[in-house]
């Protein structure tokens, strides 16, 4: 009988300049029944191999640091419990579709640039001074964008997106959700500027509507819905321009 308190983790290791290619390393974790994958990795790092590299911080699925492939699916390591995974070895790999910097650490710079490219801030309809107080925004107006504002930038959707896998320049689901978060905000007037940013060939039309981005999202942000709304918006916008040119 296998000991349920012991779990085998097969972790993809890679050290640049030393390893020719990534390869799996195997570790056994004791007292694993109630551990998250993150806690198992911490236990390995603290007691077996301090060189194992991975990002983490909050432990409560809100900082977005610890996205990785767990048994082949993009997950947050902190909120994935070992007892919820099928018996047998657990494979842990860096997020798909990103360059590996070391072990489970991938490059995040490209993703940050995408966020920055879509004007991720309020471009006010009617600027107000502090003395004028807050804008009014009804619960219904809040609901129009609120779920898109819940994105924690964990990049699981990028690891799942086949289009991003083929074309790293594709704006991708997370940035599209953020774009929709501001375009849907009753205080904002930046819609046109943002739509212009996603008209190009790496923009919204690259999406082939697989919808897996929404399935893997740990925060139910539904980026696929954001992408679709923007396809509609983008098509409508394109059509209007066509008319204007005529």
């Amino acid at each position: 009988m296998p000991d349920p308190a012991k779990r085998e983790l097969r972790i993809l290791r890679y050290q640049p300049g030393v390893d020719a290619a990534p390869a799996f390393g195997t570790f056994w974790v004791e007292n694993a029944e109630n551990l998250s994958v993150l806690e198992a990795l911490q236990s390995i790092k603290d007691t077996l191999d301090g060189s194992l590299a991975f990002r983490w911080s909050c432990r409560m699925a809100v900082c977005g640091s610890c996205g990785m492939m767990i048994n082949g699916a993009p997950k947050l390591a902190c909120s994935t419990l070992l007892r919820d995974l099928p018996p047998g070895p657990v494979t842990v790999e860096p997020l798909n579709n990103f360059p590996i910097e070391r072990d489970l650490v991938i490059s995040v710079g490209g993703f940050v640039k995408k966020i920055e490219s879509i004007y991720p801030y309020i471009i006010p309809k009617e600027p107000r001074t502090i003395a004028q107080g807050p804008y009014l925004q009804t619960p219904a107006q809040l609901a129009a964008y609120e779920s898109f504002s819940d994105c924690i930038n964990c990049m699981l959707c990028y690891a799942a997106c086949p289009q991003f896998g083929e074309n790293p320049d594709f704006i991708g689901p997370g940035a599209m959700a953020l774009l929709q978060r501001y375009n849907g905000d009753s205080r904002d007037a930046g819609r046109q500027k943002r739509l212009d940013a996603i008209h190009g060939e790496d923009g919204v039309w690259s999406c082939t509507a697989v919808g897996i981005c929404s399935e893997v999202c740990p925060k139910s942000v539904d980026p696929a819905n954001a992408v679709n709304q923007n396809k509609t918006n983008s098509a409508f916008d394109f059509f209007l321009r066509f008319l204007r040119k005529e």
């Binding site: 804008y135 009804t138 107006q141 809040l142 504002s149 501001y182 205080r187």
Partner: peptide
Amino acid sequence: HWGCPWSRKPDG
């Protein structure tokens, strides 16, 4: 003003 999605009363 910078967009923080504060929770609202029914009147906004």
